[in-house]
Simulated assay, not measured.
Amino acid sequence: MTNKIRGVLAPVLTPFNASLEADVARFIAHCRWLVDNSAGLAIFGTNSEAASITTPERIALTDALLEAGIPAGRMMPGTGACALPDAVELSRHASKAGAAGLLTLPPFFFKGVSEDGVFAYYAEIIERVGAGCAPIYLYHIPQFTHVPITLTLIERLLQRYPTVIAGAKDSAGDWRHTKAMIDTFAADGFDVFPASESFLSAAMPIGAAGCISATVNMNPAGIHRMFEGWNSTEAPGLQATSMRFAKCSKAAT
């Protein structure tokens, strides 16, 4: 895989109107502002309320962004779903559109899914999408899914699909797990994105690919500067400024 997406991505907030429909114009405007401020677009993630958006709506919103001139190469759409056919349809659509990657949850409604079951889910997506499947980034958020992305699962998927399994977003908030992912697989080209910029200063020196953080929705340029300058003398100050911004943002909400 070449030209893999890296850097700072926003799990893009999805605006809704009074009729509980996605506000397309505001969605496009926000995505354009994020891209203009050096952020990638992890549309249809947790902060995007993807579980509340139907498959046709996700496809329509993706198409609206493309028609508005937002580059597909800056997008990592969320394509995970409890229904395998939905996950395949979303993954196929995003792949054909030229998305840089697919942020793919494991099946998450029924709990206690075995590792074999999770492996089979990802394998079925890859096989059914077929040639041209965009790089898949495994979405580890066990506090919501109760279906962890384990190191052994990653190893198995990489052995079977080394040209498709590209990395992971680690949203568990457990630095030890994030570090273990990076330490074990980064040297082989597996890109790990912590879910908070608070981990950037520790994650970048050992091989992280960036971060996918909710705060990027409000501070894309600042967090991008932190990503770009992680190994500079300005890094501690950039980290501190970014974290102050995050705390102020949480207090305001």
Rank of each mutant, 00 (worst) to 15 (best):
A131E: 15
T241L: 12
H140F: 05
L84Q: 08
T253W: 01
P142L: 09
G167M: 02
T46Q: 03
P106Y: 02
I165F: 09
D36L: 03
N217R: 06
M218P: 00
S91R: 02
E67K: 11
T215H: 07
R32N: 10
G173W: 06
A25N: 11
T62D: 02
G130N: 10
L102A: 00
A42R: 05
A99E: 08
T55C: 04
G210A: 12
V113L: 14
T104M: 10
F44L: 07
L200Q: 11
D191P: 00
A168G: 08
L105T: 14
P194F: 12
F227V: 08
I5V: 11
G132T: 05
S201C: 08
A94C: 03
V113W: 00
P194E: 14
A83S: 13
E124S: 15
P236R: 10
L200H: 06
C248H: 12
T253K: 02
C211G: 09
Y122F: 10
F108M: 13
L13I: 15
L238H: 02
A187E: 13
F190N: 04
C211T: 15
L61W: 05
A68C: 04
L20K: 13
I28F: 01
A252P: 00
A29C: 03
T253R: 05
F44R: 07
A235E: 12
V129S: 05
M226G: 01
R6V: 15
K179C: 11
F193Y: 11
K250C: 03
T150E: 03
S196Y: 03
G73M: 09
N47A: 11
A235F: 10
D86C: 02
G40C: 10
Y122I: 01
V216L: 05
I28Q: 05
M218K: 09
F199N: 13
I126V: 05
A186F: 08
L157C: 04
V35N: 07
A18V: 10
L157R: 03
E49A: 12
T178H: 09
G112D: 11
R225K: 15
T253D: 02
A187S: 15
I59R: 14
V88T: 04
E155W: 00
L66R: 00
M1L: 14
P148S: 05
K169G: 11
A100T: 09
N3V: 07
Y137E: 04
A97D: 06
E228D: 12
K4E: 14
L138H: 05
G167C: 01
Y139L: 09
T55M: 03
P142Y: 09
L9V: 09
D63P: 02
H93A: 10
D170H: 08
I43R: 00
G78V: 06
Y122L: 01
A68F: 02
H224T: 12
G132M: 04
L61V: 08
S196R: 02
I28Y: 02
A10L: 03
L34D: 07
K169Q: 12
P148Q: 04
A120W: 04
C133P: 06
K250L: 14
A81D: 12
T104H: 03
G222V: 14
M181Q: 15
I70G: 05
A100P: 04
T178F: 10
N47L: 13
V12Y: 01
L34M: 07
C248A: 14
H140V: 10
